[in-house]
């Protein structure tokens, strides 16, 4: 129950000002919305109660923030009195900034929500949609239960692992229940028919699991008290929804039952701490590797910091990952024709008659001259 212990915001709660039946300042006679998600559950005799609603609009909303994204399974609300004749169930995926309907419950689908009643023989469309179901029935004890399963609006056969549409359908950060029309009042546009009424409920449950996209097996409270996934597979974020900074050798993907889709670390031979993903390289590699190392250190260069930058050459006696794997060419300022040596052998380009790895000696049959332009001349 993702709603357990979470704060519920009710647009109307009785007791302010106090009446004989309800006094918000007296714990024995208060009926706060917190009762809906407290641990007391159905065993608790206390109910949340709205203010008396003498005239339309009779909408009362109950909003519960789940703290992070969850994958819903069901939502239920147990009423203490006769359940409303019309209820809208909404969800938010962006912490309450926008809302989309999950389902409607009404004896007046067209009148209250402009919708046709849900077809009894299944969904018409290929994807999940918010349908209008019959209003919850009053129970013999005078209460009633509103119950919604995410399967109720979803075509059979969709698999959560393979259906992004279904993944989107079940994802919610907040749940809102709009009690639209009280029971018994019929068409509330008829002012003559209206009598003071209040909604009353005892338990709100939001069945679901912490959404971690398959990359965590548990959720934890962070230092700010926020619920977050304990991410693995090289992922991070509240929902493990992205790869960690250095783990971008291939695109982030949701894990499935068959494949973890681990975010892979870039291959930088221990010479870089950052990398970026390049989709074109990823495609060219046959969808195997798209990471490009950034800021190669230790005089290395290349996509994987796998060769030496200009002016340096590979020391064959050291491993590629060694911080001294690349040695400076050290070409002689007079004997060499340039400063860049062969990156593999370290051989500098020598002027005529000059020899040596760094071009620092005259070749056999040559001797040093006084000219820095032609430092070695043939021995007479």
């Amino acid at each position: 129950n993702a709603a357990l212990g979470r704060e519920v915001l009710a647009s109307s709660t009785c007791g302010r000002p106090a009446t004989r039946a309800c006094d918000a300042s007296d714990p024995r006679r208060a009926h706060p919305a917190a009762l809906l998600t407290s641990a007391g559950g159905p065993a608790s005799p206390l109910c949340w109660r709205s203010d008396l609603l003498p005239r339309a609009p009779l909408n009362v909303t109950l909003t519960v923030s789940l703290g992070k994204a969850f994958e819903l399974v069901f939502v239920s609300l147990r009423f203490c009195s006769a359940p409303p004749a019309s209820v809208a169930l909404l969800k938010s995926q962006d912490h309450g900034r926008s809302w989309t309907p999950l389902a409607f419950f009404s004896s007046y689908c067209g009148l209250d929500y402009g919708r046709l009643p849900a077809p009894v023989d299944g969904l018409a469309g290929p994807g999940p949609e918010a349908l209008c179901f019959p209003a919850p029935q009053a129970q013999p004890d005078g209460g009633g239960l509103l119950a919604f399963s995410v399967q109720d609006g979803s075509p059979p056969g969709l698999d959560l692992d393979s259906s992004p549409v279904l993944q989107d359908w079940v994802t919610a950060t907040d749940i809102r229940i709009v009690l639209t029309r009280p029971a018994m009042l019929g068409d509330t546009r008829d002012a003559e028919a209206m009598v003071p009424y209040s909604y009353s409920a005892m338990e709100l449950q939001v069945g679901g699991r912490c959404k971690c996209n398959g990359h965590a097996s548990r959720c934890l409270l962070d230092t700010q008290g926020q619920l977050i996934c304990d991410c693995r597979h090289g992922t991070e974020g509240p929902d493990c929804g992205r790869c960690k900074p250095f783990y971008c050798d291939r695109p982030w993907q949701r894990a499935t039952a068959r494949e973890a889709h681990t975010c892979l670390a870039c291959s930088c031979n221990s010479h870089a701490r950052r990398c970026r993903f390049n989709m074109e390289l990823y495609r060219l590699s046959g969808r195997r590797s798209g990471g490009v190392c950034l800021n190669c250190r230790h005089n290395t260069a290349g996509r994987h910091c796998h060769y030496c930058r200009e002016g340096f050459y590979r020391d064959p006696g050291r491993a590629l990952s060694d911080r001294h794997a690349c040695r400076a060419c050290d070409c002689h300022p007079v004997g060499a024709a340039g400063k860049t040596c062969n990156q593999t052998t370290g051989q500098c380009p020598c002027k005529d008659g000059v020899t040596g790895l760094t071009c620092n000696r005259c070749a056999s049959g040559f001797q040093q001259s006084r000219s820095p332009v032609a430092p070695c001349v043939k021995t007479p």
């Binding site: 004997g335 040596g356 620092n360 000696r361 056999s364 040559f366 000219s371 820095p372």
Partner: peptide, 23 residues
């Protein structure tokens, strides 16, 4: 035969001052 390394002190930089390396 191992030749001696080039002796920088032997070079005459008179006409090549702009090429002279910093030591």
């Amino acid at each position: 035969e191992v030749m001696p390394t080039l002796d920088m002190a032997l070079f005459d930089w008179t006409d090549y001052e702009d090429l002279k390396p910093e030591v």
